[in-house]
Design a protein around this nucleic acid. Structure first.
Lengths: 196, 196
DNA sequence: CGTCTATTTGAATGTACTCAAAAGCGGTGG
DNA sequence: CCACCGCTTTTGAGTACATTCAAATAGACG
């Protein structure tokens, strides 16, 4: 019963390692299920992030808010993605980010305590999460390079190619804040592209 | 004798874990020492990265070269930093980056084989390197946010505050390519700042 | 249907870029 | 010691990409 719920989840972990039935049980027993309505703030700047979540269903974004109240979307996370502020969650530091749901969302979450327990009881998971973080790092590195060296139009095209479903799921101005472009200009980009 | 050479190195690892003498010996025995002249290319785009290096002395940069031959400096690494292309080194994939020395450099390096051996023989190191990668990720995330939301002048000021010694060590146009600004414009920024 | 939110459009502006030329700087050899 | 060469930085003029502000339009939802 419960095993079924975790199916996609365990499949996603199995990309990195092979788990015994016992380890699978241990893993899933550490997780809390949470169902969260749209537009809920899960973490505020200054708070210490208390969760590392695997998204079963829904959509979440991490964003930074600068002095002027201007937002930068660090990332979107949808089904089969992990979401947390690593720096805050693992180092117990106040976060500089906000995390909010953009849709009704279902997540399996670790707390710092359950995550630590998992890692110490099955060291194999250290490796799994190291690999996850490495992939994340590599993705952010590539995005940084793109942000620096491409025009807004190129970045927009790359974005819709990489995440074709997101423009249908989230407001356009969030995509603007992800690409580092004003909402106005996203609109003009789309217009230019559609007339060609 | 040899122990002394590794002193700063072991101190840097000890921030993350406590090591027994045996573990220290194992660790250091896995490392190769390399002395590399200035302006040596250590990794080319398309190659698989064969090293993960700890910089004892010198300066290295990782950069991306786009279609037009335009460079983006992903990062500079100096004393007490690690340098590798994670994605390429760990996943055995052709790199999209170049790595080159900017000064005569001394490094302790792992190969994929020695690194893997270290990780399997002392699982504790999985954690150490997970933490290192997490910090790296967190730094790149912050930089992405800065790159998106701040002006070139603000980014320049932030850079020299964070790395006061680098402008004295590396040519200005490398800093430009790190900040995502033309060399011409860095010059103008400096002029404007100096006349105020 | 009305209200609230999101997107589009126009006009004016600004930030940063390109290109080309000049100046500065450092090393090497005559 | 100076002259020359190559490399880096500076400067000027013109331009492009993207922003801001304000107003108009379009969509979504009760």
């Amino acid at each position: 019963m419960k095993r079924l719920m975790y199916e996609t989840f365990l499949k996603s972990i199995s990309k990195f390692t092979t788990l015994t039935e016992g380890e699978k049980l241990l893993f899933t027993s550490m997780l809390d299920f949470r169902s969260i309505p749209k537009k809920t703030i899960l973490l505020r700047e200054g708070e210490i992030c208390q969760f590392e979540g695997y998204i079963q269903k829904g959509c979440v974004r991490i964003f930074y808010m600068n002095e002027n109240g201007c937002e930068v979307t660090l990332c979107f996370a949808v089904e089969d993605w992990w979401v947390t502020d690593f720096d805050s969650f693992y180092e117990r530091k106040p976060s500089i980010f906000f995390i909010e749901t953009l849709e009704d969302t279902e997540m399996y979450v670790f707390t710092p305590a359950t995550k630590e327990k998992l890692l110490t009881s099955v060291p194999k998971f250290e490796r799994v999460f190291r690999l996850l973080v490495q992939r994340n790092l590599s993705a952010v590195q590539k995005r940084l390079v793109t942000t620096i060296s491409k025009t807004a139009t190129e970045r927009y095209l790359e974005f819709i190619k990489m995440y074709p479903s997101l423009p249908l799921r989230v407001p356009q101005y969030y995509i603007a804040s992800y690409l580092g472009v004003s909402p106005t200009f996203i609109s003009r980009i789309r217009k230019r592209l559609s007339t060609k």
